[in-house]
Amino acid sequence: MNSMVQIKSHDVADASGAATKTKVVARGVNVHYGEKHALHDVNLDIPERSVTALIGPSGCGKSTFLRCINRMNDTIPIAKVTGKIEIDSRDIYDPTLDVVQLRANVGMVFQKPNPFPKSVYENVAYGPRIHGMATSKTDLDEIVTKSLKRAGLFEEVKDRLDDSGTGLSGGQQQRLCIARAIAVSPEVILMDEPCSALDPIATAKIEELMDELRENFTIIIVTHSMQQAARVSQRTAFFHLGYLVEEGSTEKMFTTPTDKRTQDYITGRFG
């Protein structure tokens, strides 16, 4: 009897693990920058409420792929994206889709913290205001406070919400950018090397934050730090020369990768 109960709970645990919903689906994604074929036929499923790390050497296409997910490549005139990317089964390259709405739903955090040259408060309030998410000042105050709290920054800046955002430290600026991104209630957050300009302590805070945020958001992070990918992500995808070489659970990717190129890259054997 006892053993039956155990088997049952084990099944449930397995099922819940496998039943994680896919948030972003990429099928046959190709990107050309003019003559250059930057991304070849990428197929990738990204589960919701988890961190997926995209790794690979410089120029491998990982940032290009990241930028496809909120159509940032639209801003580059020579870029041509083909194939299909769906978020919650909705084709994001559908011509009738509102790109501004898409980018509100898919937030982005960049390598270098880039707060607006405005107050801490305004940095966070800007998005909700232009998207008409707050009907009153109280509403807006609440969104700003909540976003700063979720970004783990509120305690540090609560007494200087009117000071300039650019006056904060690098790590605080990056968390301000994360607060700004989550203020418009996105479902997906893209992070392009969010810690590369930060010291180890600020990096640790952002990593801790990612771990908390993944309860509510789907996070996709491009990182050059293998250790960071191993620490923060649940799934890892390895890109090389414009191809998606291998993807799988982070645990497996960093202990027993299948592809020789993945192994060479993560162990520092790329010449």
Binding site: M226, Q227, A230, F254, T255, T256, P257, Q263, I266, T267, G268
Partner: peptide, 9 residues
């Protein structure tokens, strides 16, 4: 010193 991964670790 090296933070080895996979086969190296």
């Amino acid at each position: 010193r090296r933070q080895p991964m996979a086969v190296d670790l």
